[in-house]
Every structure is written in C-alpha cells, then in structure tokens.
Nucleic acid binder design. Structure first.
Lengths: 240, 240
DNA sequence: GTATTTTGAGTCAAGCTGACCTTTAGCTAG
DNA sequence: CTAGCTAAAGGTCAGCTTGACTCAAAATAC
C-alpha cells in the first residue's frame, strides 16, 4: 500500500468467508447449502460461511467454517481461495466483503446436526442454479464462479481424485468428470489418458467386484497435481 | 454467511488493494515498484496500492490506484484479481487484509510525477525477485504469485497481446512470451500456432519496416480470449 | 554486390487424439 | 451348465498437432 494511507480515512469493513463445497452423489454434482436462520434473507438458501475472527487468516477461517458445517477436517479435501466479492450493496447489513473458497471432497458425511448452523443439505447443482432455489446475497454468482473454476481445475489438475473416496476405480473417476462437466467421456480413451499420466493414479493391486460387470482395478491418488497436457482440447463445457 | 454472525463479534479490518503491474521493456519483464514515503518500511520498495474507500468495490479501487500511479486509464490493459492475503502480522499497523490485482500492459508511460506517490519506477523482475531489492510487507510473495499467474495466463489465454501496443508483429508477440517465460521459442512454430488460432490476431494489412531484417506484417488483437489448445505442452517454466 | 538479419513458408518423423472394435471377467437367468 | 448381460481393459487406425529443421524472401549495412 502507498503512503496515501495516512491521509485518506481507510474504509473499515467486516470480512467473511463463504464456501462453495462440491461433491458428487449419484453421478450428479451437488453443493452444500444451508438455510439461513437469521435476517437478512431469513429462510433463504445460502452458501455456508461466516465472519473472519481476530488473529485468523482467511484460510484458517475457511477451514474452521468447513469443520463447523460439515464435521470434515479439511485435510482430506481440496480447498482453495476462489475470489473476493466486494459490491458495497451485496449485504444489506453494511459494508461486508467476502472471500469465497472452493472445496472439493468425496461424498461427505452429512453436516452434523446440533451446531448453531441451520439445516444444511446437499443440493444438486441443477436445482441450485436454475432459479428453483433462490440464493441469498450474491451467492448465485459465487456459485457460478465456483462451478467454472471447478470445471477448469478438472481439466488442468488432478483434483478430480479429491472427489473419490479411496480406493477408487478409473470408472469412478470418469463419472466425476462426467458429473462436473455435464457430458459423457469415452471410457477407453479416458482410461488411456489418466493411466498414462505419470503420478495421477497409483494402483493398489486390489480389485473391486461390482454388482454387474467386470471387476475393476483399484487406485489411490498419486503425487502429481498437474495434468500435462490437459484432458481435453475442445474447451467448451455446457451448463447442466 | 451463516447466522453465527450475530453471536460472535466480527473482526473489523481495513482492506487494501495492491497491484502487480507488469510490462515488457527491452525484452525483459518489469514490474512497477514505488518507494515508500511513510512508515512502516519507509524508503523500501513496494507494490503500488492503497486503502479501499467507502462505497468502492475492489475492482474500482484497483482501477483508481492504477490511474493514480501510472496515469493509465485501465481500459487499455488487462486487470484481474489475483489473491487475498490475510496473515494477521503482515502489516505492523494492525489487521489489514489486502487483495492483490494483476495488471498487464504495454510499455507504459512512466508514472506521472507530482502525485502524492513517492518515486515509482519500472524494475526488472530479476532485480525484484533475487533479493537485491527487498520489498515491504509480504509483497515479495505477492509478486511471485503474480508472476506465476501471468505465466499461466500466457499459456491459456490471449492476454499476451495486452503487452503489445497496437499494431504489433508476430515477432513482438513472441518476444513477450520469451520475456515472461524466460526461454526462447522457435519463431516459425510460434507463428504457425498464433496465426492459426482463430480470433487471436487480426491482420491490419500494413507492414512495418524494421531497422534490420525483412518487413513484418502488422496485427491487432482479435476477439478471442482463450487459447485452445494451450501454447505449450511441457508445463515447466524456470524463474529468470 | 555481398553479408546480415528477421520474416515467413514448408517438410517430416514422432506422438497424441478421437472413434471404434474386441476381449475379458464377473454376474444372472433359464 | 450355458447363454446373455454389463462394464473393464486393451487394441487399432486415420487424422491431426507438435517440435526440429530447412529454405526462400525482403529489407538494410557495408
């Protein structure tokens, strides 16, 4: 910051973190939404989140909210900062800036009851985005940005594996991609791609026998984090 | 945010924006640094920036700072939000969160004198990052993140053209890539790539006669913003 | 005119992609 | 026991892109 700081009064604001927590259940992308128990937007659906406390970094606040809302410790899932939203009128209570985080995790245990959070539930992305479930504040825009980031991350990184409880099969992983991107992938070509990418998948040696079909080899997440080259070349993805 | 907001005291913080402004001069990447005229870090080099004012969005604050520091209107250059930095001890004056922005522009007119900003100057990335010019606050980390983002953006988008004053040649554009990425590209293959990417370059029909060498065709920026597929497949870039 | 420099076009082997086909391994129905 | 079903796993192949390379074109300097 510049020395201008001493002359103009600094705008003092409150800062929150909001979480876009994605998971895939029944082959469809879901987001964790809570029902607001206070004004404003009482009763409306919203992204989980809360105020940043004194002495806390944004990352720490996001991890704390994640733990409080989902009883997840955050060490098992992917968490990254998404964007800061600052429209002065975005919160009727006053000047509140929020920093959104994107979290990707396997089909998580449902949020614990009994916390001070109102009812939290997994909502399919289609219901959350088509206007059937109106969201509080600017959370619809945040959700759209989170979806866009998640789709991009799947193409360029190995985070898709964060959606899969270990161990998982190549088919499990492919269904993650299909749920997030919204279209089918060729199973054979997908397998060739992910198994040839060094460090993406580590075979456990075991197999899983499904109810129908041939048994599939099981894998763990490997050490690689980047997908080079990316998974697709045609970069257009359609909304669900 | 959740209803928890009403029970716990919200941490009230000041928010600043800091700008990582890159340009390419003499085939080398440069960043705009100011010399601090106030405590803390009096006399140290720092990224330009300042406090967000009341009723102002972060984007507006970043554009305003950009205008104040560089006399640029921001309509000609690329500006995007980079990351929010929130380490409680990052500013000795107290709890100050900063949202960093990345700006890419052509070799800009040097910052106007006479503003309340202290001396501002273009600093080569090598001097700014090798420790020869220690930066105030956590600005060294912000600068590294900005460089990483800029390198990634060049690979996946057409923002490299934002570094070039129009009209420009394919060689001009290639030298941008070489300066930001820190290695040479094959001129012939680079030309094939960028001219075949639909909407990247629009020929003006004119040519530019250089001091030495064959005249080069001139181009304007096209409407495309994404590079599909990306420019490289080997994704490793070395620091300057 | 010759040397030099940069642009611009072309060649070619190697590798990857997307589309498609075949086989394998388990289950279930009859 | 066999036939049929499903999904996994592996293979084929034309077409495209890439990276390395060569070569011609257009200007200036000497």
């Amino acid at each position: 910051m510049t020395e201008r700081s001493g002359r103009r009064p600094a705008a003092v604001v409150a800062v929150t973190v909001d979480l876009v927590i994605f998971t895939v259940r029944q082959d469809r992308l879901h987001v964790l939404l809570i029902e607001r128990g206070n004004e404003p937007y009482l009763g409306r659906a919203a992204l989980p989140g809360g105020f940043v406390r004194h002495g806390e970094t944004l990352d720490q606040a996001a991890l704390r909210e994640l733990r409080e809302e989902t009883a997840l410790d955050g060490r098992q899932l992917h968490l990254e900062q998404l964007h800061a939203y600052s429209e002065p009128a975005r919160d009727p209570r006053g000047r509140i800036i929020t920093v959104a985080y994107l979290a990707l995790g396997p089909d998580l245990p449902l949020p614990v009851a009994g916390t001070d959070a109102a009812a939290a539930r997994w909502t399919s992305l289609s219901s959350a985005l088509d206007g059937g479930v109106p969201l509080a504040f600017d959370h619809a825009a945040i959700l759209r940005d989170g979806l866009e980031r998640a789709r991009s991350q799947l193409e360029h990184t190995t985070v898709a594996a964060a959606f899969c409880p270990e161990p998982f099969t190549v088919g499990d992983l492919r269904r993650i991609y299909e749920a997030v991107w919204g279209f089918k992938l060729d199973p054979s070509n997908f397998r060739r791609k992910v198994t040839r990418t060094e460090g993406f998948l580590e075979p456990t040696g075991d197999r899983r026998v499904p109810e129908i079909g041939r048994p599939a080899a099981l894998y763990r997440r490997g050490p690689a984090s980047l997908l080079i080259p990316p998974l697709l070349r045609t970069g257009d993805v359609t909304l669900p």
